[in-house]
Simulated scan of single mutants.
Amino acid sequence: MTREVKGDPVGKVVVGVSGSLGSMTALHRAVGEAQVRDAEVWAVLAWQVPNGTLGSRVLLDVSLSERCRADAVGRLREAIGTAFGGRGPGMRLSGIAVRGTPGAALVHTADDPDDLLVLGTGVRSAVRRLVRPSVAHYCLAHAACPVLTVPPSPLQAEHDTMHRRNTWRAPLDLRELAPSRTREEADGSSDLDV
């Protein structure tokens, strides 16, 4: 799936999409990288059958598997729609729902050395690291192509702060929401003599 553009091989730009703010930031960066490279974007959402490894390795219930796949496709469409609204990314973007763990699905999809794998990253708590291994670490260790990790959007920190505040039911000071103003702007005075 390699194309020749201006004498340079160009692969696809593969990006992991989960619907999180970090994955939305990565999706926008992937589109930017694809425009520079004149490449196609493949947005990948990994899915698994619930209840662990047995259900994900052995096809026990075809209808359950199809429902999970349909749900993943719906979440992927919603994430792409949320990221770009009704106008779209302005280029060809293929959405792919892949059955498997996120790291393995992304590495398998970005299998050409000319591809670029784009991932959103962020700060993870100790509990989350124990429960879920890092997709970025897996991809960095196993990818056959370059991997671009995108730090979280500045809005992510604000979102996390508000989430913690809501979780702990901390009161909100409305002055934090208003833009800061100087004394002169607030009372209309000025120290300048004209």
Rank of each mutant, 00 (worst) to 15 (best):
R77D: 15
T121D: 14
V49G: 01
R67Y: 02
G81P: 11
V62F: 06
P113V: 05
T121H: 10
A70F: 08
G52F: 03
V58K: 10
S134C: 11
A97P: 02
P89L: 07
D114H: 10
V41E: 15
R92W: 09
S65L: 09
Q48I: 00
V135R: 11
V44G: 10
G74H: 08
G55M: 14
A126V: 08
H108K: 09
A105P: 07
D112Y: 04
I96P: 00
G85A: 07
A43N: 15
L116T: 06
D114A: 12
A105V: 10
A83K: 01
C68Q: 09
L116A: 02
V123R: 13
R67W: 07
R57G: 13
T109D: 12
A43S: 12
I96D: 10
G100S: 02
D112K: 01
E78L: 07
G120Q: 02
L54E: 14
G55V: 04
V73I: 11
A126D: 13
G81F: 15
P133T: 12
V49P: 04
I96Q: 14
V98M: 10
A97W: 02
V44K: 07
D111H: 08
G90T: 00
N51Y: 15
E40I: 01
L59M: 09
R77C: 12
W47H: 02
P102L: 08
V49N: 07
A136R: 00
A97G: 02
A104H: 09
S63Y: 05
V123Q: 08
V123M: 08
V36Y: 14
G88R: 09
G100P: 00
R129Q: 08
E66A: 10
L116Y: 11
A72Q: 04
L93W: 09
T101H: 14
E66N: 08
G90N: 03
N51K: 03
Q35A: 13
A110P: 09
L117C: 03
D112N: 15
W42L: 15
A97L: 00
D38R: 14
V131D: 08
V127Y: 00
R37W: 05
A72D: 12
G95E: 02
C68P: 01
A39E: 08
V44R: 11
L116P: 04
G88C: 06
V49T: 11
Q35R: 11
V44W: 14
R132W: 14
G95P: 03
L59H: 03
G95L: 01
G88T: 06
I80P: 10
P133E: 10
I96V: 12
V123H: 10
R87D: 12
R37K: 06
A104W: 04
Q48L: 06
D38W: 13
A104C: 02
H108A: 15
R99K: 08
L76V: 06
W47I: 00
V131A: 12
D61P: 03
D112S: 14
R75F: 11
G100V: 07
W47V: 05
A39L: 00
V107S: 11
T82L: 14
A46I: 00
T53N: 11
P133M: 09
A46Q: 06
I80C: 14
V44A: 06
